[in-house]
């Protein structure tokens, strides 16, 4: 199996995967024989953690499909057994279901090469395959996908929690921002689950927040507030991006230019 990083392409994805899956099956089959000999089995789930989709009756099939996908697509950086590779990618043992679900659902993983910036993009896998991968990584132990209910959250509490903990990077209207060395994305496209996962994981540069710092109830409120930023109360008219004085200044100059054009019409001699 080649150790070169593969670029996930939008075109010909299915055919690429078929070829490699076929090759992988051969290889995995060989390794599985070896794995059985060394006592490592990918069939049994880890320490009793819930898997997001499916349910325990599909558990082992999902996990093994996830294992196959992992070996073919992820192991080149994360290690054959998800133990990580120094200088390349961290270990995934113990990260549970929430981390892979977040990274795969937001398209941040897989990366084309180890130091690529893990930015938000279209997910590289369909939902079923994501669930499979999540199931496999979850089987190695770690926290489940957090449950979050925005409807039971308090908008005002969410606004305060967001202002204190999140606005510094993500901007008070969740339109995204800059950190030295990175970007904090806008959150209008984030689902409640993704918000909850990000808060608990602290992906890439983002800090993480324990249940002691942001309680599950506060997390509900936070998710409710962030989702509400999709439709801010723009009583004043066109929101021009909700990022403040910069677009406002541009509009002011456009207004001045239009007034200058009116002045030009007035000031020129018409006779």
């Amino acid at each position: 199996m080649s150790a070169q990083p593969r670029r996930p392409s939008r075109h010909g994805r299915a055919s690429n995967r078929r070829i490699i899956t076929f090759a992988t099956v051969i290889v995995v089959g060989a390794m599985a024989l070896e794995g059985i000999a060394t006592g490592q089995s990918s069939a049994s789930p880890g320490a009793g953690q819930a898997i997001s989709a499916g349910g325990s009756s599909r558990g082992s099939a999902q996990v093994s499909e996830g294992r196959q996908l992992f070996v073919s697509d992820c192991s080149s950086c994360h290690g054959f057994n998800a133990q990580g590779k120094p200088g390349r990618a961290p270990s995934l043992i113990g990260v549970g279901a929430q981390a892979p679900d977040f990274y795969l659902d937001t398209g941040r993983m897989p990366l084309a090469y180890p130091r690529e910036y893990p930015g938000e993009s279209k997910p590289a896998y369909p939902r079923a395959e994501i669930s499979a991968l999540v199931g496999y990584i979850a089987s190695l132990g770690g926290p489940a996908i957090p449950s979050v209910d925005p409807a039971s959250g308090d908008l005002s509490q969410g606004a305060q929690v967001f202002a204190l903990n999140c606005a510094g990077c993500h901007q008070i209207s969740a339109r995204g921002g800059i950190v030295t060395g990175g970007v904090a994305p806008a959150l209008q496209n984030s689902t409640a689950t993704e918000i909850a996962e990000a808060v608990r994981i602290g992906p890439y540069f983002m800090p993480r927040f324990s249940t002691g710092e942001i309680t599950p109830q506060a997390l509900n409120s936070l998710a409710r507030y962030i989702i509400a930023t999709r439709n801010p109360d723009d009583a004043g008219g066109w929101g021009i991006g909700h990022i403040g004085p910069i677009p406002e200044g541009m509009i002011a100059w456009l207004a001045l230019i239009s007034l200058l054009m009116i002045a030009r019409a007035i000031g020129e001699r018409t006779t």
Partner: peptide
Amino acid sequence: QINPIWQYGPFQPWVGTNGAQPDW
């Protein structure tokens, strides 16, 4: 819309927002 202060929330010395800019 300009300066929608209700969306910004009140000022506290220990809170900051990214992208804070003065008027042009």
